[in-house]
Design a protein around this nucleic acid. Structure first.
Lengths: 336, 336
DNA sequence: GTGGATGGTGAAAGCGGTTTCACCATATCG
DNA sequence: CGATATGGTGAAACCGCTTTCACCATCCAC
């Protein structure tokens, strides 16, 4: 038994100080309605005076609630280069902390239905889990069945069963594409992200719809697939420039690929935005520091995290949580 | 009492299945030496067969150990734009998980000695804490006194008392500066980071020493102070160009400022690297995607996290943990 | 062969909360 | 006015694991 660094007061102490039973202390501290105001006050005073703080482990053991929410991140490439998840996580963490919940971070490969993460989540070690960018939803589906409260950040493939929050990928892409047309472009290409992901798919859909609405017809030649990396953006742009001579606008599904595209355009001896206009997505730091600075679709990433946390809290309260789509905003800079 | 989603086996079940007492089950599961091999096997078999997993809360309550390590991040600007901490954290998290410890994420303002974070840490809710970039060490000092195992990521100001891991800021800056001289520069400036931080100070020291070793004398005019932001880098560079006509090299203490510097240089009508060579620090994604691509000092950020986690684990085991400095590597690209 | 280490074990007492249950007051009803 | 709900309360069981303690074997030395 590890020596306790300091002797914390327990219910025994509080109840004595307040002149009530431990049961009543518990009632007060858990917001039970049926306690006489006088005793509520007595307990609260004692708690304040003695600087009492509940012992999490003891509370968990007795109640079955841990006060822990897992934030589960697939152990993927993107994490190491993209500040996105860090920002979302900080939003989540803040809201959870305000609600007296703690954030348990799990970075791991989620393919296995049997890894340590899966065990933790199934083993009742947490009260809920917030997932990021789902590639495979086998694990999540199972957890839903076990009635673990969950929130997905990013739209899942089979959306009906899950509670999720997401940026309005469709709307953002739509606006980006429209912007290029309104700037006078007539041949607008798209460099997609991974279209296996819903975000990638939705951005492509937004592009397509904007294209059709503009009266133009989106040609297959104008669609190049990327994977969110700089190199893929550059390569895709090279292909596009080769195939479509009159190309004068491109919407890249993230900022990194947009920079790749700009690199390719300049290597081809053309100038951004004079010859080809470029719009990115994310409005990351890159968009502000690149030259030319990048017009980009901004998403409120912190808000995304906060929304995820709030949906989780709603579920824990037993309220029913509706999926939530956050709107985007186009930030116009030099590139388009 | 929340209904348990599934009935987990308990010691009662295991001990019956293995034909031993619960005490012995506990001994086996906690690696007690003095148990007969036959019983160890019996228990292990029962555990495997029944898919037993320890109940964390119960274990914590009884043992006083929570199995939780806090990763504490000051609620600062940098977090939202810099992927640095995310990467470190993922390294930490991985190592902790491999050692059956969990990562509790706390993003909060650490100025107050009395906030929720301080309470959690002091209240025995975690077995240890890993801090990032310390600005104020009042809280940390207090926790050290309370004998909470701690690791600081980044060199603390008063280093003697703490266990910490850090990148070799001095060495990296030294190498960067040397590189500029070896490329033929003679007037090499530095754009420092926040020199209130030890990292900022060490990088400046490395620059100074490299300068002296080269036989040149570092002039005060060659030192411009920045704050790690793009704008500060740009402004600093503008000042430097105004003051030192013959300037032909600059070492910026991070990549973002290096990009700011490049922007200022080009605005002044000069060319990188022909007229002025630039070296950054971090080797972030920015360094690879900027144009010209950026020569930068690379630090192994994941390793930094892993080292921090390993130092924590060593402390938990009662071994004494020595501070640890990770070496850097200069990645040469177009800018210098 | 006896006394004292030593290894191996189980019963039982916690750890610090939560929750059930029985109980005593009042308040409400017919 | 007796019978029945209702609010408020404390005693005690319990959550699942850890650890102390007492105890019984052995094993060793003398």
């Amino acid at each position: 038994m590890a020596a306790k660094s300091s002797i914390r007061p327990t219910y025994a102490v509080i109840s004595k100080a307040a002149g009530v039973s431990e049961a009543t202390v518990s009632r007060v501290l858990n917001g039970d309605e049926n306690v006489h105001p006088d005793r509520i006050k007595a307990v609260q005073d004692a708690v304040a005076k003695l600087g009492y703080k509940k012992h999490r482990a003891a509370s968990s053991l007795a109640s079955g609630r841990t006060g822990l929410i897992a934030v589960v991140i697939d152990d993927d490439l993107s994490i190491f280069s993209d500040p996105f998840w860090a920002t979302v996580t900080s939003g989540i963490s803040r809201v959870l902390m305000e609600n007296d919940l703690q954030t348990l971070l799990m970075v791991a490969n989620l393919d296995s239905l049997d890894g340590p993460v899966a065990h933790s989540l199934q083993g009742g070690e947490v009260d809920g889990a917030i997932f990021f960018q789902l590639h495979k939803d086998a694990l999540v589906k199972r957890l839903v069945k076990q009635r673990l409260p969950m929130v997905i950040t990013g739209t899942p493939h089979t959306s009906n069963d899950f509670v999720f929050v997401d940026t309005d990928n469709f709307g953002g892409a739509h606006e980006a594409t429209n912007h290029l047309f309104s700037r006078g472009c007539s041949q607008v290409a798209i460099i997609t992200g991974d279209i296996e992901t819903t975000a990638g798919r939705q951005r492509l859909d937004g592009y397509n719809q904007a294209y059709r609405k503009s009266g133009h017809v989106p040609s297959k030649h104008l669609i190049a697939e990327g994977d969110y990396s700089f190199e893929s953006g550059k390569a895709a742009m090279k292909r596009l420039l080769d195939q479509v001579e009159s190309l004068d606008g491109v919407f890249a599904c993230n900022d990194v690929m947009a920079l790749g595209a700009i690199a390719a355009i300049e290597e081809a001896g053309k100038v951004v935005p004079d010859h080809v206009k470029v719009v990115g997505f994310d409005d990351s730091l890159l968009a502000q520091t690149s030259r030319p600075t990048l017009t980009s679709v901004r998403q409120d990433i912190v808000a995304l995290g906060e929304a995820a946390a709030n949906l989780m809290i709603a579920q824990l309260r037993g309220e029913d949580a509706q999926p939530c789509i956050l709107s985007t905003e186009l930030v116009v800079r030099e590139s388009a």
